[in-house]
C-alpha cells in the first residue's frame, strides 16, 4: 500500500487519475483506518487530502452561505459561532459523531462519502439543501446535491476518481433553523438506529418552508417531502405532529438487525420527527 499527501486538488486529481489499482481518499480517517484494519478495504493507494490548502477551512461565501473544506473536522465546525447559529442541526449532528477524539478528525465529507445509511450528518445536510463541489478526473469542477450522491449502504454515486472539495451550505433565512436527533441505546459511541433532521423557516409563527430527512430507516438517507408537507402552514399543532409521524413512518423501509427491529425503527422515526421538528421550530422562533 502506498500513501501520498499532495498539496493541491489538481495534483490529487492527477495522482488519482494515473493510479493503477484501488484508491482511497483519506480525510479524518475515522472510517478509512477502521476499514483498513478490519481488512474490509485493501487499497493500493491512499491519498491524504489534509495537506491541500482550503481542505481544513470554513469560509463564509458572498451570498451568506458557507463553504466547508472537505476534511474539516467536527470540532472546527462547532467552534464557529455563526455557523452554529445558522445551521445548528448540522453542527449538532457533527457533534454526535463518536466521541471527542473522533470529532477531532471526522469530517462531513467523509461521513457522506462513506455511504452509511446511518451517517449522522447526512440527514442534516440533506434537509439543509447542502451541495457538494467535486473535482473530477480532468480537474473539472462540478456541483451536486447530497441527494445525487447517496446510493446504497457503503456506496455513493461518486466516480472512483471524484474528490469532494467542499460541502456548501446555503445562506440561512432570518427566521429559519434546523435540528438533528438520533436514537441510540447508549448516550454516545454508537450508531444511529434512526436519525431525523428537520429544517424549516417561519413566517411569523407559521412554518413557511420545511424539509425532513431520515437516516437508518432505508438503504440510504432519505428526504421525506410528504413529511415536510405536513408541517407547512402549521404551528406544529397536534394534528400536524401526528401527520408528520405518520408520513415519516410510511417513508421507512428499514431492516431487522442487531441494532433494531423493523417495527422499532418505524416507531422511533415518528417519535424523532416530532421531537426534531419541535426543536427546529423553537430555535427558529428564538432567532426572530
Amino acid at each position: 500500500m502506498e500513501y501520498v499527501a499532495p498539496n493541491s486538488l489538481d495534483k490529487a486529481a492527477e495522482i488519482a487519475a494515473n493510479a493503477r489499482g484501488s484508491v482511497r481518499y483519506l480525510a479524518g480517517g475515522t472510517d478509512v483506518l477502521v476499514q483498513l484494519r478490519s481488512g474490509l478495504h485493501q487499497p493500493s493507494l491512499v491519498i491524504d487530502l489534509k495537506r491541500i490548502p482550503g481542505m481544513l477551512d470554513v469560509v463564509r461565501t458572498a451570498d451568506g452561505g458557507w463553504k466547508i473544506g472537505a476534511a474539516t473536522p467536527a470540532t472546527t465546525l462547532n467552534a464557529i459561532k455563526e455557523l452554529r447559529q445558522s445551521w445548528p442541526g448540522i453542527v449538532e449532528a457533527a457533534e454526535l459523531i463518536g466521541s471527542t477524539q473522533i470529532q477531532g478528525r471526522a469530517s462531513l465529507a467523509g461521513n457522506l462519502c462513506n455511504g452509511s445509511p446511518a451517517a449522522d450528518t447526512v440527514p442534516a445536510m440533506l434537509a439543509a439543501g447542502a451541495t457538494v463541489t467535486i473535482v473530477g478526473a480532468n480537474a473539472e469542477r462540478k456541483t451536486l446535491s447530497i441527494d445525487d450522491i447517496v446510493k446504497a449502504p457503503g456506496q455513493t454515486h461518486l466516480k472512483p476518481r471524484d474528490i469532494v472539495a467542499s460541502i456548501n451550505l446555503p445562506a440561512r433565512s432570518q427566521k429559519g433553523a434546523d435540528a438533528y436527533l438520533r436514537f441510540i441505546p447508549r448516550t454516545e459511541m454508537d450508531i444511529a438506529v434512526v436519525g431525523c433532521a428537520v429544517n424549516m423557516s417561519l413566517d411569523g409563527e407559521t412554518v413557511s418552508e420545511a424539509s425532513v430527512a431520515l437516516g437508518a430507516v432505508a438503504p440510504t438517507v432519505v428526504l421525506v417531502p410528504e413529511a415536510a408537507e405536513c408541517l407547512l402552514g402549521t404551528r406544529l399543532e397536534d394534528e400536524a405532529m401526528e401527520n408528520l409521524s405518520m408520513s415519516c413512518r410510511a417513508a421507512c423501509n428499514p431492516i431487522d438487525d442487531k441494532r433494531g427491529t423493523v417495527e422499532f425503527r418505524i416507531s422511533i422515526a415518528g417519535v424523532l420527527a416530532q421531537r426534531a421538528a419541535r426543536t427546529a421550530y423553537q430555535r427558529a422562533r428564538e432567532r426572530q
Binding site: F183, G260, T261, E263, S267, I268
Partner: peptide, 8 residues
C-alpha cells in the same frame, strides 16, 4: 431490556 424489547 434493550429499547426495542422494552418498547415492544
Amino acid at each position: 431490556m434493550s429499547p426495542p424489547r422494552l418498547l415492544k
